[in-house]
Design a binder for these strands. Structure first.
Lengths: 137, 137
DNA sequence: ATAAGGGTTCCAGTCACGGGAAGGTCAACC
DNA sequence: GGTTGACCTTCCCGTGACTGGAACCCTTAT
């Protein structure tokens, strides 16, 4: 099977597959004409990689996951640790984004968004101490 | 004021400040010896950029925000539109991460994490149709 | 004179690809 | 047999927003 069929099968761009070969994640065979030749096992690995990437695992995590997958004597604890570490990173990223969302959301709510120049968003960016709340007497 | 003092003042690495100059976000003066010389206005801009970046705005968004900030005839609507577009992206990213978190969280919960090789995480990666739930009779 | 602690430029690397050029290969059609 | 046109190959550059490091200049203190 040639690269474009493999790509369609795995749901990955051909460019990505070439890249995965370049960095040693897969090793498809070669036909006499130099074309890459993808066997069942290669397709399986590509699908595995696509799913791991879609869960946000880094390429290096994917490499480790693939190695664990192929190691029949693996301990599920190793896989779980890797996944938990990734979950921690996901949670941290979500927390960071939610904070941005909250801050920026308040500022956007306070901004009139009309033709006048006064803007609490710019005010906050230019002076961190500035607040969008109304003054209290 | 030299670059390291400016960096300390703005809470940004000196490298980042040089980069911001390189891409035209700031234009500090130069002393006779070739050292960058940061004036009040430069420090203010750097702080502005630092806060905008910490809210997740891209460099190009920061450039636009800075231009709006310096345009006394700006319309707050322009700022608000930019911020709302960014908020949309933040929300999309959060949604994506939460889906990863949910999926991976279920898999981690279902994984024994011991010395045995059986692992629902790898099972799911190797076969998307696999489910971590217990079989129902 | 020298050593330290600034500053400067430029080059390379990061991550995970994507775009595009230049050229080889294959199947089909006239 | 020639010619499309689709597919394949390698190679190199660009992305975003920096970060690290080399090689070298400037200032101040000993």
């Amino acid at each position: 099977m040639n690269i474009n069929q493999a790509a369609a099968h795995a749901g990955l761009p051909a460019k990505t597959i070439r890249y995965y070969e370049e960095i040693g994640l897969i090793r498809p065979g070669r036909a006499a004409n130099g074309y890459r030749s993808f066997a069942e096992a290669d397709l399986h690995k590509l699908a595995f990689l696509g799913r791991a990437r879609s869960l946000g695992f880094s390429i290096e995590d994917c490499r480790a996951l693939l190695a664990l997958y192929e190691d029949r004597a693996r301990a599920s604890g190793d896989v779980k640790r890797l996944a938990e570490r990734h979950l921690t990173q996901i949670a941290a990223k979500i927390a960071e984004l939610r904070e941005m969302q909250a801050t920026l959301g308040h500022l956007v709510d306070a901004c009139a968004g009309d033709a006048r120049p006064d803007c609490p968003i710019l005010a906050r960016l230019s002076d961190h101490a500035s607040r969008e709340e109304v003054r209290r007497p």
